[in-house]
Design a protein around this nucleic acid. Structure first.
Length: 296
DNA sequence: AGCCAGGTGTACA
DNA sequence: TGTACACATGGC
């Protein structure tokens, strides 16, 4: 039994699983023995889903409740969006064949889909937390934040958390966030994002419809969202295929390693690369990030 | 000890 | 437009 999701042609569950398994400090999903667990909030109900590979399909089960048809449909759309299953990857792979580094990356991670953020607030807050600090520390702060202000269930002795919504986040204070070791700036940025969503009509659909340039300008209008954060969200949540956080340190490190550069690539070089990658920039970036993982 | 981490806003010239 | 600086903490 369970929900069956047909998988696209270029797809590797293992590659996605490996990406999700990149940190044992992650608190918004769990991976264990080949299965992925995530707590969803659908129409006010907390649904714990379990995703597994069943060869020619993905099998998704809701393991804490019986779900109706509408919920089944919502779960299905969530997983498809989260794992970018509707994206047609073949053009990206065709593009990669022409370039030595991209050829290697696309071979190494064949079938890897860009695991994204269906939730805009979660994406932006995570990006803000991650600004200019090491990832481990970012995960620790996120965990404190989610455990304190998120919602959760316990299932078979395990806690599962869901990110808080814009309304609850907007009611927090800078001081409360500082206790979790947010910097004063980041605490303000976080509140700014929640307020933009709550009071200024910021949402995924609007950002999707206005086109890349306007969407980026709209995001950057929020104090605390700069080039990097805006492009991160446009890439991982709104999914503009050309969006790429060019200033990203991880991206620089990955390029340095892949291209065997003496130093990190310059701004000029980065811009040239992104122009060359064009609409494939997001996937190139995601594959480069994946090349940094050491959890094989 | 000091610099760098999945950056950004602000303060100056 | 461009550059210096603070920011929280942890790892090396």
């Amino acid at each position: 039994m369970g929900i069956t999701i047909k998988i696209p042609k270029e797809f590797s569950f293992k590659a996605g699983y490996r990406f999700l398994d990149r940190s044992d400090k992650e608190c918004l999903h769990r991976v264990n023995e080949g299965k992925v667990y995530k707590l969803l909030l659908i129409d006010g109900e907390l649904l714990l889903i379990q995703i597994e590979d069943s060869g020619d399909a993905l099998t998704v089960n809701c393991i804490n409740k019986k779900v109706n048809n509408a919920q089944t449909k919502a779960i299905k759309s969530y997983v498809i969006e989260w794992w970018d299953l509707d994206y047609y990857l073949k053009p990206f792979y065709r593009f990669c064949k022409k370039d030595k580094m991209l050829k290697k990356l696309s071979d190494d991670h064949h079938g890897l889909r860009m695991i994204g953020f269906p939730d805009l607030l979660e994406c932006l807050v995570w990006a803000i937390i991650g600004q200019q600090i090491n990832l481990n520390f970012a995960y620790i702060i996120k965990r404190r934040f989610v455990e304190k202000y998120g919602i959760s269930i316990v299932h078979q002795g395990q806690s599962y958390f869901h990110f808080p919504d814009a309304e609850s986040v907007s009611q927090l204070t800078v001081e409360a966030l500082k206790e979790l070791k947010f910097s004063r700036q980041k605490a303000n940025y976080t509140l700014n994002v929640a307020n933009a969503i709550l009071h200024e009509g910021l949402n995924k659909n609007a950002l999707k419809e206005m086109g890349y340039a306007e969407a980026k300008a709209t995001l950057k209008n929020i104090k605390g969202v700069g080039d990097w954060t805006a492009d991160y969200a446009l890439m991982k949540c709104i999914r503009y295929p050309n969006a790429i956080p060019l200033g990203d340190v991880g991206l620089h490190n990955a390029l340095k390693a892949q291209l065997k550069l003496e130093a990190k690539p310059s701004k000029v070089v980065l811009k040239q690369l992104a122009e060359k990658w064009a609409i494939h920039s997001g996937y190139v970036c995601f594959y480069l990030w994946s090349s940094l993982l050491n959890n094989n």
